[in-house]
Design a protein around this nucleic acid. Structure first.
Lengths: 246, 246
DNA sequence: CGAGCCGTTGAGGGGATTCAAGCTCAGTGG
DNA sequence: CCACTGAGCTTGAATCCCCTCAACGGCTCG
């Protein structure tokens, strides 16, 4: 692509027409960040809309469930994603650091999935959602579908850590049954993993998994139908899940 | 958009010019799947390259580290993502079911991150990587960067479940230190979370987290520098991590 | 200097693991 | 037809790791 002027990042900072252009051009993480691939013309179009907020430790960037208006690149510092369990306990689901993009769900017009909170003093680059949509205006429907699926995979992976790797054995088995109940077969039976598979999903031993399933069978929450199938009592399951993490 | 012929999915199955076109047009999950948004012309371009493999339970779809040549939509059945720990233990990281897209890393020319194995009999739609790249040919560099970051977030979330939510308390704390060591400050110190934060990351109690940190301090793996900072002995840390999960 | 937060350490109890044995069930071959 | 086998599931008993409850010390800050 031919450019009439030198790329913005090659100009000296003080030629730039807009104050934020200087900030963007001299940004230490620009080459690693979302807009690293953008040329000078692209950068010119966006810098007026970008802000560079700084936060102190324990300040919140966004909140779970909030309508997502912007995504952020982390220029410096560490951010944690957390979520409040129904019993009030907090679960920290992952960290993000310099160069990472957070709040991508904004692009899909979804609410934020978790709280994002600064662990250390943090410097951000705030990118309004509409800006990326404009830049990606030429994108095909397939591209958008792809992003939606990527986000879905991310949510599932997060849910796995949150639901199946937290709490005691009984709670984990119950949560697994809840996940499996979303994939019923034609006769409304669920696929019930081998005890060894359950163990590897929940980070338990085979014996503990077996003991939990047996207990739930005695409570009529589940009825096992060998081989590797089962019927769930949805009401009792919901009740047991509720009781287990409150 | 004007179309010269009726949309493919409205024609009766036997007018379709290519056998796979019938399969695609009548696919039960088409409206939920990646190419659901595609019009008749798009579908015409791709169906010749799509295959619909069926697998039995415990057959493998792809393998961790393999060069990713294709991505897959799950038309039926349940698929597990798993990974072998260095001690030979298996960790199941998440499940995917009907309508889910798996192996997206293929689009970014990355190797597959985990093994994907059929849990039940599975029907897939195999989409060669080059096909999506062609369809998304008009995509901007920013779009590609976005996908890369989405994949990065997915990997981090998966790693979190794998490393920080598995094994005993000592192993989890060591893995956390390993993660934190990737975000050093200017003086090569790491940010060391409060014990309460560590507990919420690792699903432990404050006391257990404190005991582990104290123990590692006695072993000279870590030197705490209040407030909330520390120096790591990289060699001892690597050795301790190695010992903890072998 | 007392209050409160944070980290540490101890003692006791409980839940998960470990080790072991017995069970069901499908497949095999006498 | 039925003993034999092996894989998977279940249950018991002992052990161990982590949790719970508690007390205490260092530190900051009003």
């Amino acid at each position: 692509m031919l450019m009439k002027t030198a790329p913005l990042y090659l100009r000296s900072a003080d030629d730039a027409s807009h104050p934020q252009a200087r900030a963007c051009a001299s940004c230490a993480v620009r080459k690693d960040a979302l807009f690293g691939a953008l040329d000078a013309q692209g950068l010119e179009r966006i810098h007026a809309h970008i802000a560079s907020p700084s936060l102190q430790a324990d300040e919140r960037i966004f909140t779970q469930g909030q309508t997502a208006a912007a995504l952020y690149t982390i220029r410096n510092g560490i951010v944690r994603f957390e979520r409040a369990a129904s019993d009030g306990a907090r679960r920290i689901l992952r960290l993000a650091g310099r160069g990472d993009l957070i709040g991508q769900e904004a692009l899909l017009l979804q609410p934020y999935n978790d709280d994002a909170v600064a662990c250390t003093p943090v410097e951000l680059c705030r990118i309004p959602q509409h800006l990326v949509q404009d830049l990606a205006a030429g994108e095909s429907a397939v591209t958008r579908e792809l992003m939606t699926r990527w986000q879905h995979a991310l949510q599932e992976a997060t849910r796995w850590a949150d639901d199946l790797r937290s709490g005691n054995a009984r709670r984990r088995v119950l949560q697994l049954l809840r996940v499996l109940s979303r994939h019923p077969d034609e006769q409304d039976r669920i696929w019930l993993p081998r005890r060894e598979e359950m163990a590897d999903m929940l980070d338990l031993t085979v014996e503990t998994a077996s003991r939990c399933v047996s207990q739930l069978r005695r409570e009529h929450v589940i009825q096992t139908l060998p081989p590797r199938h089962a019927l769930l009592n949805a009401a009792l399951l919901a009740q047991a899940v509720q009781a287990a993490d409150s």
